[in-house]
Design a protein around this nucleic acid. Structure first.
Lengths: 112, 112
DNA sequence: GTCTATACCTAGATTATCTATATACATAGA
DNA sequence: TCTATGTATATAGATAATCTAGGTATAGAC
């Protein structure tokens, strides 16, 4: 396991940023959209996370002024961030498969 | 999501106890065995969890004296526990599928 | 006599997440 | 004009799951 509890937010965020730079609000909306409303990240989760992974060097943030409306802070993934993403995506995949396998033990057995 | 971060231990434990009553040490070993060493629950996680879900009425604990070696506290799942298991197993399944789907976005696309 | 396995327990620290609140600009409606 | 909603960021404080690290006790192996 190695500390897989929670931490799913990070891998999801990195996985989006691996496609293209995004700003916080956009990340939240995009994850919500892709999951059909399932993932609903709170601001109190997302922004501190972005600050943390920026400090850790996994992403780089850059302010961008918008004509109308508040400025946006665009985050782009770094090479280090891609490494972490690759590793933790693999870990989450393993974890999910292991979990589902054990939970699956007690699904309807194929008519014994 | 509704608070899915962590909490995987509980659903795993309940899922084992849905098969048959087990004691703490046995649960740890069994999960380790079934996951080929992947799940490795620490005592500091497992025992407090068992106490909590017993207090919540999801399991019932019963001491059993063994001829040789320390006594064991066998836990059996309650009807309430089965309800919770069913619900959280479904939630974990959804969560895993959603997660894997989004992480899968950036796997090798089928040779475009 | 010490080590390992079995079997339970708890205190304290860490940390991810949530709740709640704040700021600020734009627009639409009453 | 006032208010509500959407956009966009931010932080303080609470909650809770997990880990670390210790402790007790029995039994068998070397």
């Amino acid at each position: 396991m190695t500390d897989l509890r929670g931490g799913s937010t990070q891998v999801l965020v990195l996985s989006l940023l691996a496609e293209e730079p995004m700003y916080g609000y956009q990340i939240a909306k995009e994850l919500e959209r892709r999951s059909e409303g399932y993932f609903d990240f709170k601001e109190g989760t997302l922004y501190p996370l972005l600050h943390r992974i920026e400090k850790e060097g996994l992403v780089r943030g850059e302010w961008q002024v918008v004509e109308k409306g508040p400025s946006r802070k665009y985050y782009s993934i770094t090479p280090e961030g891609r490494k972490v993403l690759e590793k933790s995506a693999a870990e989450w995949t393993t974890f999910s498969q292991r979990l589902l396998k054990i939970l699956g033990q007690e699904t309807e057995p194929a008519s014994t």
